[in-house]
């Protein structure tokens, strides 16, 4: 983390997530947790499950390497009135479970003629920057867009999982929570000052849509996926300090369906608007957001998209860096677009 300034809390994001999972299993004996290598002392590949199997041994299932199978088992538990949570070890593996997610979990809600509740939360670690290569680094979110009754969410440093995860699981249809792996070790932030420049507030009562700003009129707004927030934050600092461009950042917890209403006060004043995500080019979440914004404000300037290259994710550090969105890509794109390059005398 290159940002400086005060933190709202000393909790790390993985600890916040782990605390949320403990609270869910503690508060409701219909909640199950399934996934690969999730038992203590290992507690899952990224330790989100730490302590769960010790406290709730009969509702935490460590599974064979069978994504299709164990998402199906979770569907069966849901069918029997339970509220399962599934951990996919690496998001790239979620494709193995595509049939159970799309054809069973999501379609079951409505394809039998009347609405049938189907409670299911799938947790899905995604993203690169760790040198794991093409099959362990992908941002898979875009492949799940546009499925009726399948909600998509993304972990961010700003959103409190202990408040939001119970609400996802209480919905009458399934959801996937995408979790950028590089966030886990970072500090959990929240409402209030997040550094010496930026403040975070929520635009809605449910605290789903975070708004990060400096107290000035912005020249641009970045709508950022949770995982790309750190890059956007760093870029926003640099744009302000080196280019005197104020950008604000909006981070929706819910990626899809994209809820545009809470953004109305911001977007109707029409600064330049960007969507930033780590996913690679083509059929992106940003394209979906742009379509929703265009529908709501037909006369605004087009939404601009910032995403990773049209590429697999390579392993070597320098190659991976070239493919994935970096803070400097955002700085360059925004400053060039706005024709407002005014470097300050002290820039690094």
């Amino acid at each position: 983390m290159t940002n400086t300034g005060e933190r709202s809390t000393s909790e790390r994001i993985i600890e916040n997530l782990n605390r949320a999972l403990h609270a869910l299993l503690d508060g409701d004996d219909r909640v199950f947790f399934l996934g690969e290598d999730v038992l203590d002392p290992y507690g899952g590949a990224f330790k989100a499950a730490r302590g769960l199997s010790t406290k709730y041994p009969d509702r935490v299932l460590t599974t064979p390497i069978s994504e299709l199978g164990f998402v199906g088992v979770a569907n069966g538990l849901s069918l029997a009135g339970q509220r399962p949570i599934v951990e996919i070890m690496f998001g790239d593996f979620i494709f193995l479970a595509f049939d159970q997610i799309i054809n069973f979990a999501a379609k079951s809600v409505s394809m039998y003629g009347r609405r049938v509740p189907h409670h299911l939360l799938i947790r899905c670690p995604v993203g690169g920057h760790r040198g794991y290569g093409a099959t362990h680094s992908q941002s898979v979110q875009k492949h799940f867009l546009g499925v009726p009754d399948l909600d998509l969410f993304e972990l961010s440093p700003l959103h409190d999982n202990t408040a939001l995860l119970p609400r996802i699981l209480a919905r009458d249809h399934p959801g996937i929570l995408f979790e950028s792996k590089v966030l886990y070790a970072q500090p959990q932030l929240g409402e209030g000052a997040i550094d010496d420049l930026f403040t975070c507030e929520f635009l809605d009562e449910e605290r789903m849509t975070a708004h990060v700003f400096v107290d000035r009129d912005p020249q641009a707004i970045l709508i950022a996926s949770g995982g790309s927030f750190p890059a956007c934050w760093q870029a926003a600092r640099q744009l302000l300090l080196e280019h005197e461009i104020e950008v604000q950042i909006v981070v929706p917890f819910q990626l899809y369906p994209f809820e545009v209403q809470s953004l109305a006060p911001l977007l109707s004043t029409a600064p330049a608007l960007y969507v930033v995500e780590e996913g690679t080019a083509g059929g992106t979440w940003g394209a979906e957001v742009a379509a929703v914004v265009a529908e709501a404000w037909p006369h605004r300037a087009p939404v601009r998209l910032i995403h990773s290259a049209d590429s697999i994710i390579p392993s070597a550090r320098h190659l991976e860096r070239d493919v994935l969105v970096q803070p400097e890509n955002i700085v360059k794109r925004v400053s060039t677009d706005l024709h407002a390059i005014h470097p300050r005398s002290h820039h690094q």
Binding site: L68, G69, F70, G72, V73, N75, G76, L77, L79, A80
Partner: peptide, 9 residues
């Protein structure tokens, strides 16, 4: 697999 989950419950 769905049957296995239902059966567990």
């Amino acid at each position: 697999p769905v049957a296995v989950g239902a059966a567990l419950q």
